[in-house]
């Protein structure tokens, strides 16, 4: 028999061990009352948490088609607004036109930067998780 790791009790409980190893573990449990008691405690905790966590289960009212439509509508509105602003600006004096164009440019630049930074932040999130688990 390979050396026993306490974490394998969880593996046995969740049905994640190989058939052969699970059989070895069951045999070990019958021969060791302390270990059996430890396993029983784990079974009880698991049952409580399974029932408690199932209370939060619900079916979210979500729709991929609706979400895609909403997203396209937002982009269409944004493009239309920019075109309308550009056309309206043709009617006002040039300094105002330049000023508004600069504000618009700054807004778009900020938006773009935010997207890039958010991406970087997500990458860092993975890096932190990986280094915590020692896989990097």
């Amino acid at each position: 028999m390979t050396p026993f790791d306490p974490a394998e009790l969880s593996g046995l409980l969740d049905g994640e061990l190989s058939l052969e190893r699970a059989e070895e573990m069951r045999h070990l449990l019958t021969s060791d009352p302390t270990l059996h008691e430890q396993y029983e405690r784990l079974v009880r905790l698991n049952a409580v948490w399974k029932s408690d966590s199932s209370r939060l289960v619900f079916r979210p009212q979500v729709s991929l088609t609706g979400g895609l439509m909403a997203h396209r509508l937002i982009i269409a509105c944004l493009v239309l607004s920019i075109v309308l602003i550009r056309l309206t600006l043709k009617l006002v004096p040039q300094p105002i036109e330049i000023g508004v164009a600069l504000v618009l440019f700054a807004f778009l630049l900020g938006w773009g930067l935010r997207l890039v930074l958010r991406e970087t932040e997500e990458d860092c999130h993975w890096l932190v998780e990986r280094s915590a688990s020692g896989t990097t």
Binding site: A7, S10, G11, E16, L42, L45, T135
Partner: peptide
């Protein structure tokens, strides 16, 4: 989901359950 090996999942889950039992 967590980009970790399955063995790490088992040991981390077991440690978490022990900690949860301690909370109870």
């Amino acid at each position: 989901s967590l980009r970790i090996p399955e063995g790490t999942v088992m040991s981390r889950l077991h440690a978490a359950r022990q900690a949860l039992a301690e909370v109870y």
